[in-house]
Amino acid sequence: MAVQSAREAPVGVAERARPGTAEQALRVLRSAWRPAALLALLFVAWWVVTATGLVQSYLVASPADTFAVIADKFDYFWQNTLVTLWETLAGFVLAIVVGVLAAVLMVYSPTIERTLYPLLLFAQVIPKIAVAPLFVVWLGFGIEPKILVALLMAFFPVVISMVTGLKSIDPEMLQLSATMGAGPLKTFYKIRLPASLPHLFSGLKIGVTLAVTGAVVGEFVGANEGLGYVIQQANGNFDTPVLFAGLVVISLLGIVLFALVELLEYFVLPWHASRRADAATTSM
Rank of each mutant, 00 (worst) to 15 (best):
A71D: 15
A71Q: 15
K73P: 01
D75H: 12
Y76N: 00
Y76K: 01
W78E: 03
W78F: 11
W78D: 03
T81Y: 09
T81Q: 13
T81G: 06
T84K: 07
T84V: 00
W86L: 06
T88A: 03
T88I: 00
L89P: 04
A90Q: 12
G91F: 05
F92G: 08
V93Q: 08
V93F: 06
L94S: 10
L94E: 07
I96Q: 12
I96C: 12
I96R: 10
I96K: 08
V98I: 15
V98K: 11
V98C: 14
G99Q: 14
G99N: 08
V100G: 04
V100N: 10
V100Y: 12
V100K: 08
L101W: 15
A102Y: 14
A102P: 04
V104I: 13
V104Y: 14
L105E: 08
M106A: 13
V107C: 15
V107R: 14
Y108Q: 09
Y108I: 00
S109L: 07
S109G: 02
P110H: 06
T111C: 00
T111R: 10
I112H: 07
T115M: 14
L116V: 15
Y117S: 11
P118R: 13
P118Y: 10
L119C: 05
L121M: 15
L121D: 08
L121R: 07
V125E: 13
V125L: 12
V125G: 06
I126Q: 14
P127I: 00
K128A: 00
K128V: 01
K128S: 03
I129L: 13
A130H: 12
V131G: 09
A132D: 09
P133R: 14
L134Q: 10
F135P: 00
F135L: 05
W138N: 01
L139E: 00
L139F: 08
F141T: 10
G142C: 04
G142W: 05
G142Y: 02
G142F: 01
I143W: 12
I143R: 15
I143D: 08
E144C: 00
P145K: 02
K146I: 00
K146N: 05
L148A: 14
A150R: 10
A150F: 09
L151N: 11
A154R: 14
A154M: 09
F155W: 12
F156I: 01
F156Y: 15
P157F: 03
V158E: 13
V159F: 11
V159H: 13
M162W: 11
M162Y: 06
M162I: 00
V163A: 11
G165T: 06
L166N: 14
L166I: 01
S168H: 07
D170C: 01
L174W: 03
L174A: 05
L174Y: 03
Q175G: 06
Q175E: 14
L176E: 12
S177C: 06
A178L: 03
A178Y: 03
M180E: 07
A182G: 06
G183I: 00
P184D: 01
K186N: 11
T187W: 02
T187G: 05
F188L: 04
F188H: 04
Y189E: 01
Y189P: 04
R192L: 02
L193D: 07
L193C: 03
L193V: 01
P194M: 05
P194D: 06
P194W: 05
A195Q: 13
S196Y: 01
P198A: 04
L200Y: 12
F201T: 09
S202P: 03
